[in-house]
Simulated scan of single mutants.
Amino acid sequence: MISITKEFSFEAAHRLSNHPAACKHIHGHSYRLFVTVSAQEIQEDDMIIDFKELKQIVDEKVLKTFDHALVLKKNDENARISREIKSTIFWMENEPTVERLLDYIRKQVQDALPTPVFLKKLKLHETASSFGEWEK
C-alpha cells in the first residue's frame, strides 16, 4: 500500500447554535485540510493519482463549498440570523463542528476518487492547535 497527502486551506465562518459559550456566536477560522489517499499499487504512470487531479477533486467538492462561506445548521434560529447576512451560506443538517465537517468532506472526496484510489485519512485543523481526524 502506498499513500500521498496534499494540504489545502480555506477560510470559513460558522456558529454552533447548541454551544453554551462563545462558539454560539458567528466566528471564523483559517482551516487547514490534509487529504491522504492510498492505492494498493502504483499505476502505469508511476503515480497512484496526480496531485493536480487530487487538487481538482478537492477544489470542486470541498473548497467551492466552504471557502469564504458561512456554515450553519438548518434551524429556525439560524434562518432568522441569516436574513441579515449578505454572504454565501452552506446549510448543514447538523452543527458545523470539525467532526461534522470531516464527515461531509469524507463523503464528497471518497465518491469522487477514481478507482483504484481510496481515501485513507483526513485531518482538518480549525486552529493551529485544534483539529479533527478521520481515518479508514
Rank of each mutant, 00 (worst) to 15 (best):
residue 3 S to N: 12
residue 3 S to M: 06
residue 4 I to W: 11
residue 4 I to Q: 10
residue 5 T to D: 08
residue 6 K to F: 00
residue 10 F to D: 08
residue 10 F to H: 12
residue 12 A to Y: 02
residue 13 A to L: 07
residue 16 L to N: 10
residue 17 S to Q: 13
residue 18 N to E: 10
residue 20 P to E: 07
residue 20 P to G: 05
residue 21 A to Q: 12
residue 21 A to K: 11
residue 22 A to C: 14
residue 24 K to T: 05
residue 27 H to W: 07
residue 28 G to K: 12
residue 29 H to I: 07
residue 29 H to M: 11
residue 31 Y to I: 02
residue 31 Y to L: 00
residue 32 R to I: 11
residue 33 L to Y: 04
residue 34 F to G: 02
residue 37 V to L: 05
residue 37 V to M: 01
residue 38 S to K: 15
residue 42 I to G: 03
residue 43 Q to E: 07
residue 43 Q to V: 01
residue 45 D to S: 15
residue 45 D to E: 05
residue 50 D to F: 00
residue 50 D to V: 03
residue 52 K to M: 04
residue 54 L to V: 09
residue 55 K to Q: 07
residue 55 K to N: 10
residue 56 Q to G: 04
residue 57 I to G: 01
residue 58 V to W: 02
residue 58 V to I: 13
residue 58 V to N: 02
residue 58 V to G: 12
residue 58 V to Y: 09
residue 59 D to E: 15
residue 59 D to V: 11
residue 60 E to W: 13
residue 61 K to Q: 14
residue 61 K to S: 05
residue 62 V to Y: 00
residue 63 L to K: 04
residue 64 K to H: 12
residue 65 T to G: 02
residue 66 F to A: 14
residue 67 D to T: 15
residue 68 H to D: 03
residue 69 A to V: 06
residue 69 A to G: 07
residue 70 L to F: 09
residue 71 V to M: 11
residue 71 V to F: 06
residue 71 V to N: 15
residue 72 L to I: 06
residue 75 N to R: 14
residue 75 N to F: 02
residue 75 N to Y: 08
residue 76 D to N: 07
residue 78 N to I: 10
residue 79 A to W: 06
residue 80 R to W: 07
residue 81 I to G: 04
residue 82 S to L: 04
residue 82 S to A: 15
residue 83 R to H: 09
residue 83 R to C: 05
residue 83 R to Y: 07
residue 84 E to T: 06
residue 84 E to W: 10
residue 86 K to E: 11
residue 86 K to W: 03
residue 88 T to K: 11
residue 89 I to N: 06
residue 91 W to C: 03
residue 91 W to T: 01
residue 91 W to Y: 01
residue 92 M to K: 13
residue 92 M to F: 01
residue 93 E to V: 13
residue 93 E to W: 08
residue 95 E to D: 12
residue 96 P to A: 09
residue 97 T to H: 04
residue 97 T to K: 07
residue 98 V to R: 13
residue 99 E to W: 09
residue 99 E to Y: 03
residue 102 L to Q: 08
residue 104 Y to E: 12
residue 105 I to E: 05
residue 106 R to Y: 09
residue 107 K to C: 14
residue 107 K to F: 12
residue 109 V to R: 01
residue 110 Q to F: 05
residue 112 A to P: 02
residue 112 A to W: 05
residue 112 A to M: 14
residue 112 A to I: 02
residue 113 L to Y: 09
residue 114 P to T: 06
residue 114 P to R: 04
residue 116 P to S: 02
residue 116 P to T: 00
residue 117 V to S: 11
residue 117 V to T: 07
residue 118 F to K: 14
residue 119 L to A: 12
residue 119 L to Q: 03
residue 120 K to T: 14
residue 121 K to H: 10
residue 123 K to N: 06
residue 123 K to A: 01
residue 124 L to D: 06
residue 124 L to S: 11
residue 126 E to C: 05
residue 127 T to V: 10
residue 128 A to D: 05
residue 129 S to I: 01
residue 130 S to D: 14
residue 131 F to L: 07
residue 132 G to I: 00
residue 132 G to L: 00
residue 132 G to Y: 00
residue 133 E to G: 13
residue 134 W to C: 06
residue 134 W to L: 12
residue 135 E to A: 05
residue 136 K to E: 08
